[in-house]
Amino acid sequence: MRPPVAPYLTVSPALAAIAYYTAVFGAKQKAIMPAFDGLRIMHCELTINGGAVMLADAFPELGHTRIAVPGELVTASVSLEFEQADMVDDVFAKATSLGGKPETSPTKSFWGTRFATFRDPFGHRWLLNGPLR
């Protein structure tokens, strides 16, 4: 069963994003549907940190999505809540070593978590939180 809310990312190339999310977050592929062109992904569902993240390549020819402008930042963010604060540091280190752009290095937040943010190589922003004890 999926959580009640799950982000759906448009990301091209989707296969590269799937590989990145697997390496950084330990994502597990739950479902994948290749497109008829044999080059793109119509739909993929990943399990990340116990939740669902879905993604697909852009299909501008269908009129529902557009290809991102190079260098353009995506306006939505995905927030991950970890069970331990040190997981924030571990994920941030993996993400940035594999091409993610750091925004906020791991720090103690005023709201009581270990917190960090980064942009993945596809422009999506990830917020990482882990409880301080």
Rank of each mutant, 00 (worst) to 15 (best):
M1H: 08
P3E: 08
P4L: 04
P4S: 05
A6E: 06
A6Q: 06
A6M: 09
P7A: 10
P7W: 05
Y8Q: 09
Y8G: 04
S12L: 07
A14L: 05
L15G: 05
A16K: 12
A17D: 00
I18E: 03
Y20R: 03
K28R: 15
Q29D: 09
P34N: 07
A35Y: 02
F36K: 14
F36I: 14
F36R: 14
D37W: 11
L39T: 07
R40E: 05
M42C: 12
H43M: 11
H43E: 10
E45C: 08
T47V: 09
T47L: 04
T47N: 09
I48Y: 00
N49R: 12
G50C: 12
G51T: 08
A52C: 13
V53P: 02
L55A: 06
A56M: 14
D57S: 12
E61F: 10
L62S: 13
H64M: 11
T65N: 06
R66M: 15
R66F: 13
R66H: 14
P70A: 13
E72Q: 15
E72I: 07
L73E: 14
L73T: 12
V74G: 07
S77N: 15
S79A: 15
S79W: 10
F82E: 07
F82Q: 05
F82C: 08
Q84L: 12
Q84E: 13
A85M: 02
D86T: 07
M87N: 01
K94W: 02
G99V: 01
K101P: 01
P102R: 03
E103K: 02
E103L: 11
T104A: 09
S105D: 06
T107K: 14
K108C: 11
K108H: 12
K108D: 15
S109M: 11
W111C: 10
T113V: 14
R114D: 00
R114L: 02
F115D: 02
F115A: 05
T117Y: 01
R119F: 14
R119Y: 13
F122W: 06
G123F: 00
H124W: 13
H124R: 10
W126Y: 10
L127N: 03
L127F: 04
N129L: 05
G130L: 01
G130E: 00
P131Q: 13
R133W: 08
